[in-house]
Design a protein around this nucleic acid. Structure first.
Length: 192
DNA sequence: GCCTATCGTGATG
DNA sequence: CATCACGATAGGC
């Protein structure tokens, strides 16, 4: 499983943590991932599921689960392969047409939302430094704060935090700097 | 390489 | 509330 190139996303701010999160583990091109989806009331449609969490399993499923559980301690995590897989197929299927933007439910401060929205503006393969991003947001001196917010992104790939690199090439990543490089290399290659 | 300015967050009392 | 420590930084030396 992988995502369509230039997939469009729709960010839906949450006012409070969802009561329940359905989750499953998915096999992807770059390894196993944990995905959580939630019903949200903001969109008026019958299939109103939004993606809430998309984490790489870099150590073990237990570790990943534990991390997500801690972050979403107010929500009940419910193993639900069927529901989650349904959402995944709907938006990530190879043969699906991605006419619809992928709904992503996010919970964060105003500042964090603005950082994540800025991330969503980056195109596939495009990179940007932390300071450039800060400047783009009109907060040129809030570089460290921007980095903090970038690091707290819960939805890997779709909210492309891997496209932010440091000015000297150090370039850290929550799930490993090497994975970040792989992702960027892949985005720049022609076989996306 | 080390030093420091910088600023939003979360923890703590 | 007030304070504090902490970064996926950057720039000066």
């Amino acid at each position: 499983m992988w995502f369509a190139r230039d997939a469009r996303i729709q960010l839906i701010p949450l006012e409070s943590p969802p009561k329940t999160l359905c989750f499953t583990f998915l096999a992807t091109k770059f390894g196993q991932m944990m995905m959580c989806v939630t019903k949200h009331a903001t969109v008026d449609s019958k299939d109103n599921f939004a993606i809430c969490v998309l984490h790489f399993v870099d150590k073990s499923v237990e570790k990943t689960y534990e991390e997500v559980r801690k972050r979403w301690s107010k929500s009940e995590l419910q193993k639900d392969d069927a529901t989650t897989q349904l959402v995944a197929n709907k938006f990530f299927g190879n043969d699906k047409e991605n006419s619809k933007a992928i709904p992503i439910a996010i919970l964060g401060t105003e500042f964090q939302l603005s950082v994540w929205r800025a991330l969503a503006d980056l195109t596939t393969g495009e990179t940007c430094t932390y300071s450039q991003l800060a400047e783009r947001m009109g907060r040129p001196s809030a570089i460290r704060a921007v980095a903090n917010a970038v690091a707290k992104n819960e939805v890997a790939i779709l909210i492309p935090c891997h496209r932010i690199v440091s000015q000297n090439g150090a370039s850290k990543y929550h799930w490993g700097a090497d994975l970040k490089q792989q992702l960027l290399a892949f985005e720049k290659s022609s076989n996306y």
